[in-house]
């Protein structure tokens, strides 16, 4: 039995390590390329994995040419508002869809699902026209706009609410809580991991959304990290090291956010609902 356990453990570590190596490859590549010369970065024959000398100049050039402070500010303002909106509205709607009976529930949930089935590209021009009609191009509001509500988040949190035991609500009802109180006090804390996951995804999707900020926020100061990156990419089309330096500059805050929040998973139910 012990031997089998040890063997399983070795297998698990091997599996995870091999997988991890594959996963980290693009990031490692990005980091290494950001320190290379142009010739090193495009050379495949012979293939150059490690740069000859570390070229910090790539970073300096990119920082000098671009206003990263503005990009960080815009990106984080966008992420902040999108996360607040999507967590709040999605949690409310998800709870109603999962736990409450009301006329039109299935139909309305059908609309939520329906939205997810449509490729996002079709929304760009109609949403552009709306923001334009409001005279809101080149603002943080414009960046937040398509993410004010989230069908994805509603569907995700609904699954988490569905999985909570029914007895909880009955107990809360006996304690004299109304539906809103039950939701906020009892149910919401129990879906903590789901909320964190949604927060991470919302930030990530917002961060990666490139086409919308490119088109709606055309002035340089109102760009987000990813739209600025796309612009930098077209500017330095073959200067891969500078492009990768810009990518590293764009990515590290996201990495940090994830590293901080993924720790929350470890807590999970053991702290919030352990009494179950």
């Amino acid at each position: 039995m012990g031997k089998v356990g040890k063997f399983a453990k070795v297998l698990a570590y091997t599996f995870l390590t091999v997988g991890a190596c594959l996963m980290i490859l693009p990031f490692l590549w990005m980091l290494l390329t950001s320190f290379k010369t142009v010739a090193e970065s495009t050379s495949m024959n012979p293939f150059v994995f490690f740069p000859n000398t570390v070229k910090w100049i790539n970073y300096l050039e990119v920082i000098e040419k671009n206003n990263f402070v503005a990009f960080y500010y815009n990106t984080f303002a966008m992420i902040l508002f999108r996360v607040i909106c999507s967590l709040l509205f999605s949690a409310m709607a998800a709870y109603a869809f999962a736990r409450l009976q009301f006329p039109g529930r299935n139909f309305l949930f059908g609309i939520v699902l329906f939205q997810m089935m449509v490729p996002t590209q079709i929304f760009i021009i109609p949403q552009y026209l709306m923001v334009d009609a409001l005279g809101m191009r080149n603002t943080i509001f414009a960046l937040v706009f398509p993410g004010i509500v989230s069908a994805f988040g509603t569907f995700l949190l609904r699954q988490f609410f569905l999985n909570l035991p029914k007895e909880l609500e009955e107990a809360a009802k006996l304690d004299g809580c109304n539906i809103g109180q039950t939701f906020v006090r009892i149910m919401l804390p129990l879906t903590r991991s789901g909320l964190i996951a949604l927060g991470i995804f919302t930030s990530l999707f917002a961060f990666k959304d490139m086409m919308w900020p490119l088109i709606i926020n055309t002035s340089t100061e109102s760009a987000t990290l990813s739209s600025a990156l796309a612009k930098i990419q077209s500017a330095i089309s073959v200067h891969y090291p500078e492009l990768m330096a810009a990518s590293v500059l764009a990515i590290w805050p996201m990495l940090l956010i994830f590293m901080v929040f993924q720790k929350q998973f470890v807590e999970g139910i053991s702290t919030s609902g352990g009494k179950l």
Partner: peptide, 20 residues
């Protein structure tokens, strides 16, 4: 105010701008 947008997105932006 110079606005720089890469080739393919440039035309999407212009299209949206012309429509709106």
């Amino acid at each position: 105010n110079i606005e720089v947008i890469g080739w393919s997105d440039y035309w999407t932006m212009l299209e949206a701008g012309a429509t709106g």
